[in-house]
Design a protein around this nucleic acid. Structure first.
Lengths: 292, 292
DNA sequence: TTTTTGTCTTTTATCTACAATAGACAGTTC
DNA sequence: GAACTGTCTATTGTAGATAAAAGACAAAAA
């Protein structure tokens, strides 16, 4: 069926939220800019809203007729892009057990399992191969190298090199660089979560990514920043399926982050290095423990 | 036309070379193992050889009837895989001038230019994107980020981090590790080329890759080894279309390599670091000079 | 018993087709 | 005149089809 219209459905849902807050919608180009899609898609959304009697649309006039109801929204499963679906499905297979290193990966079988065409699976595997977890044998299958202890050690070795260098660059940023403000916001969020750790410890994962990405970005090196994708995806899925001691683990990491942030603020290279190393060492241990 | 039979043609050509040296060919599985293709392809090759009256084939007996002539071989253009063709064509576009940073890349146009389907171009771009020279805008075009000064600086920054660490690991390898023998062979080749530099300076590029890859491999870190792909492709194409002062440049690099190799052999970390840094600095300068 | 061959099935690489989405341009409205 | 809308075209994302290549298994030969 050619292309899934997930962009439309997702944008439609987001437009509904906007609609709930106003009495008239802005112009098509403006809507497109806020939602992040083309005018073609915006017009499809407006047409659909008209059909549902949500708005009266005549050229520039887009009058809101009623508030959106729950059934006006497209279900969440239909708004995920195919590549997201494939990624999740694949990561579940290889991280959530039952996949030994050395196993063969079969494009056709994967595609059938997920219920999609082979082209998309193939493209996913190509994109995914840069994460070092799979390897292609041309004209033949892919090999799963597995989420092993070696993988974790190699990953963290590079991570430590990159993050130490990035942290040093961070200290050298101008005082008026926006990263300092973002650091303040991130620090405040740390305090917020810690203050209510029992109910909010699950928010750590997202904050962790935001913080480390900020640090990596100050390297101004695309290879270092891109490498953070690998770390992010591994930790993201890993935490999702591995929740033992999550509360204590996250609480400790939050404290380490705060020490690390304080060190960054001193701009003292030796202090930064010490705090950064301490946190990365404990992050590595956490990752390693959960492997066997 | 579905799949190109370049695997067959290339394997056929390589089989012809084997055939020129014997009076009878080995078993199908053995041939497959030496050429590196499946039995299916081997049988296709044998069939073709029979048609050309090169061999008499009856089950296990594969008697050579005559020596292969030049016209028996498939022309070299037909043995390159599609991805090689696309890569070359694309690299020519972006390295050999006429491609400003920020330019849009159009899958369809590229495919038409190269005379291939869009799927292959698309897959190439996805694979290529990890080199940091292009970037995808989902549902829209690719952006050429360009082979700029920034690119070269970011690339060499990471390269220096990785190679220094790898060189240190090299020094720690067991005395009987095969890498030491390979290092001897590489050193000898350096002397050979230097002794006849005027006519052999073009062989440097290949040797350079072999040497640095050997060093990177001793890191035993897949991310470090994989990263060398980026360096290799950049230097490979870059030298191919940029031949000013190639002789002097290569002669100097060979000398630097020899000093670097000598340092590795001492296993003295300080000496290694000094020699490695010296060479990498001059490699970076060479690369930077050729950009503007 | 081990290796080889004959035959058959499965999978990959690639092309083509088409709906979704982006984007261009001219005419219209403010 | 600047921004917006109507309309049209071009490109991307994905499925499906097919030849090339890999690989499985049993029968045959050493």
């Amino acid at each position: 069926m050619a292309k899934q219209n997930t962009v439309f459905k997702d944008a439609f849902n987001r437009c509904l939220k906007l609609l709930a807050e106003t009495s008239a919608l802005p112009s098509e180009p403006e809507l497109g800019a806020t939602i992040g899609v083309s005018r073609t898609t915006i017009r499809a959304i407006l047409t659909r809203m008209e059909e549902l009697q949500l708005i009266a649309w005549d050229k520039r006039a887009k009058v809101v007729l009623r508030h959106p109801k729950a059934e006006d929204y497209y279900p969440a499963e239909e708004t995920d892009s195919l590549s997201e679906i494939i990624e999740r499905s694949f990561m579940r297979r290889i991280l959530a057990g039952g996949a030994e290193p050395g196993m063969q990966i079969n494009e056709l079988e994967l595609a059938r399992d997920i219920g999609t065409g082979t082209t998309s699976v193939r493209e996913f595997l190509i994109r995914f191969s840069r994460f070092g977890l799979i390897e292609k044998r041309p004209n033949s299958h892919w090999i799963l190298k597995g989420f092993t202890r070696e993988f974790a050690l190699e990953l963290t070795e590079v991570r430590e090199m990159f993050e130490l260098r990035s942290a040093a660059s961070f200290a050298a940023l101008d005082a008026d660089h926006p990263a300092w403000q973002e650091l303040e916001r991130i620090e405040a969020l740390h305090h917020e979560i810690l203050a209510d750790i029992d109910s909010r410890y699950r928010d750590f994962s997202e904050l962790d990514e935001r913080f480390h990405l900020l640090v990596h970005k100050s390297s101004s090196n695309r290879f270092i920043v891109d490498f953070y994708d690998i770390i992010a995806i591994v930790f993201h899925y890993h935490y999702q399926w591995n929740k033992t001691n999550a509360r204590e683990r996250n609480a400790r990491a939050l404290e380490e982050h705060l020490a690390y942030i304080a060190a960054l603020k001193t701009r003292d290279v030796a202090q930064i290095e010490a705090a950064c190393k301490r946190h990365l060492r404990s992050a590595r241990e956490t990752l390693l423990q959960s492997i066997q």
